[in-house]
């Protein structure tokens, strides 16, 4: 599915968190969203999965305004992996993943064999099947993150929005999770802080700063020392990995560099 962001602005409490952002994510493309804290990444993502209505502009999924379709219709096509918000109800891991089937169900519908197979598959792919009946609230941060990715998978979406899906994961599970999303072939927008991961897994990187897009393109074109100095205020070198051809960012330590 093609995801189109058209001139989206979000103004909350007198502050412009997102300013006139336009971008298009092609069918099957994986787009990384990067930028410093407070750049507006999460706010922009929230307009995609209907958590925050844009003050101006539109978000289109295959040409259809996501804010004008019923919530259930969007959830059958687009799944979001959010930062975990704690509960206190002892829902089991299985219950949490099973929620992913909700958009496909009507009142009084039970989970049929197909639903159960989808839930089992999602649990297995994220390596959390052994935790199926553990209480979700007692898991570690990384385990919770994998469960929430499994829930999004159980939605069987064609488009995915992921907000920092790997920040609690160890290296192995970071690779597994991003490989998994890549392998699904879905259209995906992923907020990532790790630029090397973004460069290795995503087709394009979109860099935001102060609510605006400051760079958008292939990793090798976007990740330049000049841009990193301007946006992140760091002194960095970018080398192309000799074997994979992927740009690698390495930082010079020693405090932040003040530009101009």
């Amino acid at each position: 599915m093609t995801l189109t962001v058209e001139n989206v602005s979000v103004r909350i409490g007198g502050r412009d968190l997102v300013r006139q952002v336009s971008l298009e994510v092609a069918e099957g493309e994986m787009l990384a969203l990067a930028g410093p804290n407070g750049a507006g990444k999460t706010t922009l993502l929230r307009t995609l999965y209907r958590a925050r209505r844009p003050t101006r502009g539109r978000v289109l999924l295959d040409g259809e305004d996501v804010w004008r379709m019923p919530a259930g219709r969007l959830a059958r096509r687009l799944a979001a992996v959010l930062q975990e918000s704690g509960g206190d109800f002892e829902l089991s891991v299985y219950d949490v993943v099973a929620m992913g089937r909700t958009p496909h169900k009507r009142a009084f519908d039970g989970d049929n064999a197909a639903d159960k197979a989808i839930i089992a598959d999602a649990l297995g792919r994220l390596d959390v099947a052994g935790l199926a009946h553990a209480p979700f609230d007692r898991l570690s941060g990384g385990e919770k993150q994998r469960v929430l990715i499994a829930r999004a998978l159980a939605q069987r979406p064609t488009t995915m929005v992921l907000d920092e899906p790997t920040n609690h994961l160890d290296l192995r599970h970071q690779l597994d999770a991003l490989n998994l999303v890549r392998g699904l072939g879905v259209t995906a927008v992923v907020a990532l802080h790790d630029l090397n991961m973004a460069a290795a897994f995503c087709d394009r990187i979109c860099v935001m700063d102060a609510g605006r897009i400051v760079a958008l393109g292939a990793p090798a074109d976007v990740l330049t020392p000049a841009l990193l100095a301007e946006v992140y205020r760091v002194d960095a070198e970018v080398v192309i990995h000799p074997r994979t051809g992927v740009p690698q960012v390495s930082l010079r330590t020693g405090g932040s560099r003040v530009t101009n």
């Binding site: 929230r46 999965y49 209907r50 958590a51 019923p70 919530a71 259930g72 219709r73 969007l74 959830a75 059958r76 687009l78 799944a79 979001a80 959010l82 918000s85 929620m99 992913g100 909700t102 958009p103 939605q155 929005v161």
Partner: peptide, 8 residues
């Protein structure tokens, strides 16, 4: 937020 993203 999660409930909204799941179509509620």
């Amino acid at each position: 937020e999660a409930a909204a993203s799941l179509g509620l």
